[in-house]
């Protein structure tokens, strides 16, 4: 495995979303871990280092907004991309206040999220030069 391979965590309570995203992002050369429960995903953030987090907002238990807040506390450098099926102006604004890299409403095609992830990866690589 390449030392430069960026690591992505995907969190969405709908397994079909994880199933679609994982191969699409691995195809671009990223290492991808997927989770459908936010508490398990947060444990993974605590025990491992991720470069990019892609998270849904509306989930049972800990919602995406709280998850990204906690994840940013643990790993302030991580770039977070929010994906949501229930977009509102408030959630979009709150996401950006919390310093997310991008906000994407569902449905989205894989090309769209691949582009956003590539931009986030470029930013990370630039900051590490």
């Amino acid at each position: 495995m390449s030392q430069n391979k960026l690591k992505i965590l995907v969190l969405d309570d709908e397994p079909i979303v994880c199933k679609r995203l994982q191969p699409a992002l691995e195809k671009l050369g990223f290492t991808v871990d997927t989770f459908t429960r936010s508490f398990e995903a947060l444990q993974a953030v605590e025990s491992s280092t991720y470069d990019i987090i892609i998270t849904d907002l509306k989930m049972e238990g800990m919602d995406g907004m709280r998850f990204l807040t906690e994840a940013k506390k643990i790993s302030p450098e991580v770039e977070v991309i929010v994906i949501t099926g229930f977009a509102t102006m408030e959630t979009a604004k709150e996401s950006f206040k919390k310093g997310v890299f991008d906000f994407i409403a569902k449905p989205f095609n894989l090309g769209e999220i691949q582009q956003v992830v590539q931009r986030a990866a470029a930013k990370i690589r630039e900051s590490r030069k």
Binding site: E14, V17, G85, K106, P107
Partner: peptide, 10 residues
Amino acid sequence: SQDSLEMINQ
């Protein structure tokens, strides 16, 4: 399709 379910959600 999942996309159509999500479109209704939005």
